[in-house]
Computed example of a mutant assay.
Amino acid sequence: MQKALIPTALLGLLLTGAIFGFFYAWVCSTMWGLDAIDPHVAIQAMNGMNASVRNAVFAPAFFGTPFVLGSVAQMARKEGHRQASWLFNSAAMIYLLLGVMLTGFANVPMNEALAATALPDDPAAAAQIWAEYSPRWQMFNIIRTAASGVSLLLVGLGLLKLR
C-alpha cells in the first residue's frame, strides 16, 4: 500500500471532522445564543465572528478539505481501492458543493451585507435586521452542516474500505 495513503486519509478525516464540528457548533449553540440576546449585540457579535474567521487556522479545514479528499481518492484508485476512491471522491464533491460553494454564494454575501448595514439606534429596527438575517443564514448553515456530516461519514466508510 502506498505509504502516503493512510496518513493522507487520516488527514482528510481530521479536516472533515473539524469543518463539520465548526458548522455544527453554529447550529446547536452559537446562533441560538445570538438569537437569545439583544439584536444590537447579536449583530455586533456576528460581525466580529465573521471578520475573525478569516484566518490561517480556519483556512486549511475550510479550503483544504476537498483537495485532501480528492488526493486520497486518487491515491486509493491507483492502489486498486475503487470503492474507497468513490467514497473519498464523493465526500470531496459533497463538501465542495454544499460546504465551500454554498458558503461563498449564500453565507458570505449575507455576512457582508450585515456588516455593511448601519446598526440602527432603534431596538425594533435592529430586531428586524436580525430577524431577516438569522433564520435564512441558519437554513444555509444547516445545509452545509448536514453536507459536512455526510462527507465525514463517507470518509469514515472510505477508511474502512482501505483495510
Rank of each mutant, 00 (worst) to 15 (best):
N55I: 12
G12A: 08
L5A: 08
L119K: 01
D35C: 11
K78S: 13
S71F: 15
W86D: 14
A131F: 00
L160P: 02
M110K: 13
H81N: 09
S90H: 04
A131L: 01
A127N: 05
L102P: 04
A118W: 05
M46G: 02
G33Y: 08
T65S: 06
W26R: 01
A9V: 12
D121A: 15
R144F: 07
P123L: 09
I129Q: 04
F20E: 05
R77G: 07
H81V: 03
G104Y: 06
L15G: 00
G21A: 10
V68F: 02
A131M: 02
V150E: 05
A84Q: 03
F63V: 14
Y95R: 00
T103M: 00
M93S: 08
K161I: 06
M139S: 13
L114P: 01
P109T: 08
V41Y: 12
V27R: 02
P109N: 06
P60W: 11
A147T: 07
V108S: 01
A9L: 10
T117F: 12
S151T: 07
N111M: 04
N141R: 00
F58P: 05
A106K: 15
A56N: 12
V41R: 13
N141E: 01
G158A: 05
L160A: 10
G80M: 05
V53M: 08
I129Y: 06
V100N: 09
G104P: 03
S52D: 11
L102G: 02
